[in-house]
Computed example of a mutant assay.
Amino acid sequence: MTETPDYQFAHHTLDRFVYGDLRQAAVINVGRYFNTDLYPGGRFERLDGGGDRPEVQHQFTASDLTAVRCLGTDIKPVSAIALLETHAGRLSALLRRIPHMPLYEAPLSEINASSSAGTLASMLLSDDFPHLGRMTATKLLARKRPHLLPVYDIVVGRVLGKPQNITHCLHSWFHSDPERAKSLASMRDEIPGVADISLLRVLDAAIWTHGYEDTVEAAS
């Protein structure tokens, strides 16, 4: 698989975190993100045992909504009710068809628009879930399948040049060079206390903390 031109800037930036000049800072920042109380988002994947644990892996729960709040996003009551009650059966049916596998091993067919993950993402953006929005949808999906589906927000988008589809962007990044997943795993191994965190979230935390610190510095 070749790198899509639209994602060349994003891929180059991702390489900087994993191989290049931003790697050492990423190791420090990710450790601080997950191992201190400075960032509520550090609890997103772990809160209440995780959103992908066996007893809740096929349904959205109140804990998932709270986890999304840890990333700075509030879900309005009308959408919360739709997630937890009104459309819970339809959502659960789709979640059952989304595999638990890392993005760097997943075929494109598991994340494209016609896949169960793509169908669920489109459903969350429908009128059945008012005011939810694309970024909130990615957070909900990442909570349920943290190894396959990435978080996306404004800060990450700004750092990566606003890729059109973050999941496809990362999929093509991983699959165009298998060494990238190995190097990212090696980076995670350098960080104490994050062995249970998915590679996608380690990468997301590295990108987000870098972008957030730049924002804070610019504002000061």
Rank of each mutant, 00 (worst) to 15 (best):
F60P: 04
R32I: 02
S116I: 05
D6T: 01
L84Q: 03
R90V: 11
E110S: 13
L108P: 03
M123I: 13
A185R: 11
Y19P: 00
S63H: 09
A121M: 12
A106M: 08
A88P: 00
S92L: 14
E55K: 09
T86C: 09
T119I: 10
P130Q: 08
L170T: 04
P130D: 08
E105R: 08
G133Y: 02
P77F: 10
R188F: 11
T138V: 00
S122T: 11
L149R: 03
H168I: 05
S115P: 07
P163V: 14
A25V: 08
A219M: 12
H168L: 11
T36A: 09
G42N: 01
L71D: 08
V30M: 07
D196S: 15
V216D: 03
P192N: 04
T13A: 10
D128M: 13
R32P: 00
K144P: 02
K162C: 03
S116A: 15
M135H: 04
H131N: 15
V159M: 05
L141T: 08
L200D: 05
D204E: 13
R201W: 11
F60H: 05
T36P: 05
L200C: 07
F44V: 09
L71T: 02
E213P: 05
R134H: 10
V156F: 11
E3Q: 12
S122N: 15
A195Y: 01
L14A: 07
L132N: 08
T119V: 14
D74P: 02
H11D: 07
S115N: 07
I166T: 12
S126Y: 12
S186F: 01
T73L: 14
T86N: 07
K76G: 14
M123W: 14
H131K: 14
T13Q: 15
Q57C: 09
I98D: 04
A117V: 09
L38M: 06
A218T: 07
A206R: 02
W173P: 01
P99L: 06
P5M: 12
E3H: 07
Y7K: 00
G50R: 06
L149F: 14
Y212H: 12
N35Y: 04
I81L: 12
